[in-house]
């Protein structure tokens, strides 16, 4: 028992140290990668909120796009400061999510899959078709966030300050999502996913709770979108297409979606793997495909189920 406690203490101790010192020890490009990883961590965790109620939503990346486009229009077009644009854009994503979740809540399994894909594509088509205000195929430019003027270490056009901004927002988001997940609301979500008949019977309004999960997940996808937009300084519809959704699905299948940490494990592992394999960059899609097949055969519940599997082998 003591051994495990030391291990946990070690991880809990070193993680913040690593997270805070890393950007100073590595090159600017790598700091950007870390920032991107943090954004993806918010993305996969918010996705897990939706998979809990039984739906693998192919509209999640477009929700991220809603947040991105939201901040592009608010902070770029209207000049609204970042710290207002962030929650507003996330709320926009949540509102769009709420609207599409009503018809989606009536579908299950494969139908949900297809319907969410259709909804996501409809949203993307809006960005492509309506040059005003979404900029069509070329997309929009996004200004860097400004919290305080003329302070060097708060110049968010630079990689390191932006990393710390993202880190702070990621931490807050994860805490909120964790609390949501482990609250009675999370219990109701898991209840309706495991035994819908009984959940209905004890008075749980299934549609309402599914919509809540979808809107909540979309909110944080929006947060991720805002952070992405302000990092790239420009967004276009192609970034929020099926390619991105595919990566999201691979991360979540790889890491598992039944625990809070599962998807995070998945995205972190595969991102580092992707970096290690940078010399083989043409092979990466094939390697990812092979990884998915292997995982589905040998560890179908994802990486998060590994500790339990190892325990039962002893």
């Amino acid at each position: 028992m003591l051994k495990i406690n030391y291990k946990q203490a070690f991880l809990l101790g070193t993680l913040p140290v690593v997270l805070i010192s890393a950007p100073f020890a590595i090159s600017g490009y790598k700091v950007d990668l870390l920032t991107n990883l943090l954004i993806n961590i918010i993305l996969v965790t918010s996705f897990q909120l939706i998979t809990t109620t039984g739906g693998w939503s192919l509209a999640h990346i477009p929700m991220m796009g809603c947040g991105a486009y939201g901040t592009a229009l608010l902070s770029g077009g209207l000049g609204i400061p970042f710290w207002i644009s962030l929650p507003l854009s996330a709320l926009t994503a949540a509102a769009v999510g709420l609207v599409i979740s009503y018809p989606l809540a009536r579908t299950k399994g494969f139908a949900f899959f297809v319907a969410s894909f259709a909804a996501g594509e409809a949203i993307r088509l809006c960005w492509t078709r309506f040059k005003i205000p979404f900029g069509g195929h070329k997309g929009l430019t996004v200004p860097a966030p400004v919290l305080v003027e003329n302070v060097a270490w708060l110049d968010f056009e630079e990689a390191v300050p932006y990393y710390f901004l993202t880190l702070t927002i990621t931490l807050f988001s994860l805490i909120i999502m964790y609390r949501l997940n482990s609250s009675r609301i999370g219990d109701s979500w898991r209840a309706l996913a495991s035994e819908e008949k009984l959940a209905k019977s004890i008075g749980i309004n299934i549609t309402k709770y599914k919509m809540l999960a979808f809107a909540g997940g979309s909110f944080f996808a929006g947060v991720a979108g805002v952070l992405l937009a302000h990092r790239l300084w420009a967004i276009e519809p192609r970034q929020f297409g099926f390619n991105a959704t595919l990566y999201l699905l691979v991360w979540v299948v790889f890491g598992g979606s039944h625990t809070f940490a599962g998807p995070i494990l998945g995205v972190v592992t595969l991102t580092f793997l992707g970096e290690l394999l940078r010399p083989l960059v043409e092979w990466v899609p094939m390697i990812y495909g092979a990884i998915v097949i292997l995982i589905l055969i040998f560890l179908p519940d994802g990486l998060e189920s590994l500790p339990n599997k190892l325990k039962s082998l002893r």
């Binding site: 495991s194 035994e195 008949k197 009984l198 019977s201 004890i202």
Partner: peptide
């Protein structure tokens, strides 16, 4: 008004 189920439906993991 509430009903029970013939093949008992319970929250199995709880």
């Amino acid at each position: 008004l509430v009903r029970t189920f013939q093949l008992t439906a319970l929250f199995k993991e709880m």
